[in-house]
Design a binder for these strands. Structure first.
Lengths: 189, 189
DNA sequence: CTTCTTTGTGACATATGTGTCACTTTAAAT
DNA sequence: ATTTAAAGTGACACATATGTCACAAAGAAG
């Protein structure tokens, strides 16, 4: 070791997240990030080749965190508890789908270090999908979820629900319960 | 009149839409747009002061079109027909919520021509909300929609549903019917 | 044909972003 | 105290975006 770092990878990722959410991938720049971290722009190049590599590395980090949390779903035995857990998980990080979307807008150059990250990211994506697909299948087998609804719609529906803007500022608990209710039973009487 | 225009406002808006959806507001530039339209970049400055004004003008155009379509909802008498019409409308332009989101990420400078556009845009937004809110109220009064669900959640659901990615490429008609079904009756048996 | 007006353009000055590199700073190891 | 290597920086060359303006091009009106 020599000389203390001025920022941790963790801090870098936190700022990256904010900037990506605010400006999107195209609008995100090393200049902005360096300013947020109070370092020179060139410092960041010590750790990442370019925007592409940084962004994919960050997405990988975020995805791994999410998947780790997702595994905990197996601690719950009933389908209803699992659904509750999944929804709470997503409520805790409502930005996750937007980030995944931004992640998909990263253009991957041939033969870049980012390629590896990108490939691994696709693996994690598949992992996630399989986890969730298994969950939906269980729900159908156990007779909770109506079997004629396509699995991808079930999952999409759950994911998108979290992104509904709470413009009326309804208290978290009440809002979350309403969403769970609508997911289960729809809008109609 | 003098000299023919090389592009119509319509064409300009179409390209603007594509670029905004692809790159987001921050990633969008006059250079890209000029290239798409096969004109010099400076030509666009003849019609718009800057990116800000162009983007707000475009959003205004898009919003007006959408609201005009939305009015047609009154041609349908029953709540169920109105809901069907609304959902079909949104299926026809699934980009609308993403565009609205992008529109909200336009930073409005003080004392710019874009201010006027922006204020008018907010009015249209309110119009839209009132239209839709009225629709939901009707649904509750007529006993179709469960009254305990917040109105904004009902609307959020309808809007967000359209954005669910159809990864399995299920045929349009079937997919749309499934979504309508889930919105009405939820995922559970 | 000349004039007028709209439409379009290239070039300039300026700003911001990118990637690199020789160099400095700083803390640990000897 | 000296050496070493990681961590950090300013500056350079280059690319791209911005806004402006004097001027060119092209139809319409006279």
């Amino acid at each position: 070791m020599a000389r203390q770092k001025k920022f941790t990878t963790e801090e870098l990722y936190v700022q990256t997240k904010h900037l990506l959410l605010e400006h999107g991938y195209d609008g995100f720049s090393f200049s902005q990030l360096a300013e947020k971290l109070n370092v020179a722009r060139s410092t960041i190049y010590k750790y990442f080749e370019n925007k592409e590599e940084l962004a994919t590395a960050y997405m990988l980090y975020e995805m791994n965190k999410f998947l780790k949390d997702l595994e905990t779903i197996h601690d719950y035995s009933t389908f209803n508890d699992q659904l509750d857990y999944l929804l709470d998980l997503m409520f805790d990080q409502p930005e996750i789908q937007q980030l995944i979307l931004i992640g998909q807008s990263i253009p991957i150059e041939e033969s870049s270090r980012a390629r590896k990250n990108h490939e691994q990211l696709e693996k994690l994506h598949l992992d996630m999908y399989e986890q969730l697909d298994g969950f939906v299948k269980l729900g159908k087998e156990n007779g909770h979820i109506r079997p004629q609804i396509p699995n991808s719609l079930v999952l999409g529906y759950i994911f998108q629900s979290i992104a509904i803007p709470n413009h009326e500022d309804i208290p978290y608990r009440e809002w979350a319960e309403s969403i769970k209710d609508v997911i289960r039973h729809g809008l109609f009487k």
